Simulated assay, not measured.
Amino acid sequence: MSRPPINPDKTVAGIALDPQTLERVIPESRRPDGTVRKQIKIRPGFTPQEDVRKFRGTRQAQMDANALPKGHIIGWAPPPQSTAAASGSAKPLSKAAKKNAKRREKKAEQASVPDDWEDDDEEAKAGETGETAAKAEPKPASSSTATTKPSGSGDAHVEELSSKLGKLGVK
């Protein structure tokens, strides 16, 4: 004969099957102050209110059984899986794993983009002339970004700014 489970299955109300006597009981438990509650026997046939299920008629139960999964599109069939993907032991990613993978990809993209921008800033700070700095820099979206950029000399900065404004069509 096999041994009874250490933690028998309990109902919502906490009723479990006593493995020794095979009676339904609420097992003894410990109170917050350390004292022990006695085991309570449950009469045969008694069902507490917590364990009573919501009534579903035969048609309602049939509709629930035949219901399509949430988000299912009628008439859509999933594409056939290749044998290589089916034979692989890789489990599908959970929702959290997919989210973390997207975060890692986004972080990798953001890490690569600022490196290029820092290189442009360092070249401009190194004291290049206005013409070469204008060629190396990407076109600014507005004139406010061009005014915040430091340049080698004041006259070159004014000429650079006026040439950029002329290209943008600002008068």
Score class of each variant (00 low, 15 high):
residue 35 T to G: 02
residue 35 T to D: 03
residue 35 T to V: 03
residue 35 T to A: 01
residue 35 T to I: 01
residue 37 R to D: 06
residue 37 R to G: 00
residue 37 R to E: 04
residue 37 R to C: 02
residue 38 K to Y: 01
residue 39 Q to G: 00
residue 39 Q to R: 15
residue 39 Q to S: 11
residue 39 Q to L: 07
residue 40 I to Y: 11
residue 40 I to G: 01
residue 41 K to Q: 06
residue 41 K to R: 14
residue 42 I to Q: 07
residue 42 I to F: 04
residue 42 I to V: 15
residue 42 I to Y: 08
residue 42 I to E: 08
residue 43 R to C: 01
residue 43 R to S: 06
residue 43 R to P: 14
residue 43 R to A: 08
residue 43 R to W: 03
residue 44 P to L: 00
residue 44 P to Y: 05
residue 45 G to V: 02
residue 45 G to C: 07
residue 45 G to I: 05
residue 45 G to P: 09
residue 45 G to H: 06
residue 45 G to K: 07
residue 45 G to T: 04
residue 45 G to D: 09
residue 46 F to I: 02
residue 46 F to T: 04
residue 46 F to Q: 02
residue 48 P to H: 06
residue 48 P to I: 01
residue 48 P to L: 02
residue 48 P to G: 02
residue 48 P to M: 01
residue 49 Q to Y: 07
residue 49 Q to L: 07
residue 49 Q to A: 11
residue 50 E to Y: 02
residue 50 E to S: 09
residue 51 D to P: 11
residue 52 V to W: 04
residue 52 V to H: 07
residue 52 V to Q: 13
residue 53 R to I: 00
residue 54 K to E: 14
residue 54 K to I: 09
residue 54 K to P: 12
residue 54 K to W: 03
residue 54 K to Q: 13
residue 55 F to D: 09
residue 55 F to Y: 15
residue 56 R to V: 07
residue 56 R to C: 01
residue 56 R to Q: 11
residue 56 R to A: 05
residue 57 G to K: 06
residue 57 G to P: 10
residue 57 G to R: 04
residue 57 G to Y: 01
residue 57 G to C: 14
residue 57 G to F: 00
residue 58 T to E: 10
residue 58 T to Q: 10
residue 58 T to V: 08
residue 59 R to M: 12
residue 59 R to E: 14
residue 59 R to S: 06
residue 60 Q to H: 10
residue 60 Q to G: 09
residue 60 Q to N: 09
residue 61 A to F: 03
residue 61 A to C: 04
residue 61 A to N: 11
residue 62 Q to S: 09
residue 62 Q to Y: 09
residue 62 Q to A: 13
residue 62 Q to K: 14
residue 63 M to A: 14
residue 63 M to V: 12
residue 63 M to N: 14
residue 63 M to E: 15
residue 63 M to C: 02
residue 64 D to Q: 14
residue 65 A to W: 12
residue 66 N to V: 03
residue 66 N to D: 15
residue 66 N to K: 13
residue 67 A to E: 14
residue 67 A to T: 11
residue 67 A to S: 13
residue 67 A to L: 06
residue 68 L to F: 10
residue 68 L to Q: 15
residue 68 L to V: 10
residue 68 L to T: 12
residue 69 P to L: 08
residue 69 P to Y: 02
residue 69 P to G: 06
residue 69 P to R: 13
residue 69 P to T: 03
residue 70 K to R: 10
residue 70 K to G: 00
residue 70 K to Q: 10
residue 70 K to H: 05
residue 71 G to P: 12
residue 71 G to V: 07
residue 71 G to M: 07
residue 72 H to I: 00
residue 72 H to Y: 11
residue 72 H to G: 00
residue 73 I to M: 09
residue 73 I to R: 15
residue 73 I to P: 05
residue 73 I to N: 11
residue 74 I to Q: 11
residue 74 I to P: 00
